[in-house]
């Protein structure tokens, strides 16, 4: 059986490489997208195998919030849990993200273990 996948949406290649460490420890495969538009393309192809989306907020082009709104309106994608991984620590942004439907959030900077822990929590609490 093919491994389940986690989609990382962040315009930083370094952040995606850090995420890969946590994802592989949990025996998932990594899918990457550098922005919201690319992420939608990846979702369209790989929807069935994606168990979680890790999503940055501040990205050029389609922002994290715009991407989130788009997928939450789509019956094909709305049930895939999304965890925000962002520098945006202000309460208002976090509340906005949760009200928009994120399952969890993680503030940068984070250690790879912390990300692993949050991924476990996200997926186990689906």
């Amino acid at each position: 059986m093919d491994k389940k996948k986690i989609l990382c949406v962040d315009d930083s290649t370094i952040i995606r490489k850090i995420m890969r460490a946590s994802i592989e420890i949990l025996n998932y495969s990594l899918l990457e997208a550098s922005g919201g538009t690319e992420a939608l393309d990846v979702l369209a192809k790989e929807r069935e195998s994606i168990v979680l989306i890790l999503l940055d907020l501040n990205m050029p082009g389609m922002s994290g919030f715009e991407f989130l709104k788009t997928i939450k309106k789509d019956n094909l994608y709305k049930d895939i849990p999304v965890m925000m991984v962002t520098t945006e620590g202000e309460k208002e942004n976090i509340v906005k993200a949760v009200q928009a439907g994120v399952a969890n959030y993680l503030l940068k900077p984070f250690t790879s273990e912390e990300l692993t822990k949050k991924i476990i929590q996200c997926i186990s609490r689906r």
């Binding site: 850090i18 460490a21 790879s112 692993t116 822990k117 476990i120």
Partner: peptide, 18 residues
Amino acid sequence: ISHTVLQMAKNGRYDNIS
């Protein structure tokens, strides 16, 4: 105190960063 963290510890698997 954390169940999740303990389970990770018991697994004894670490990534190339940590």
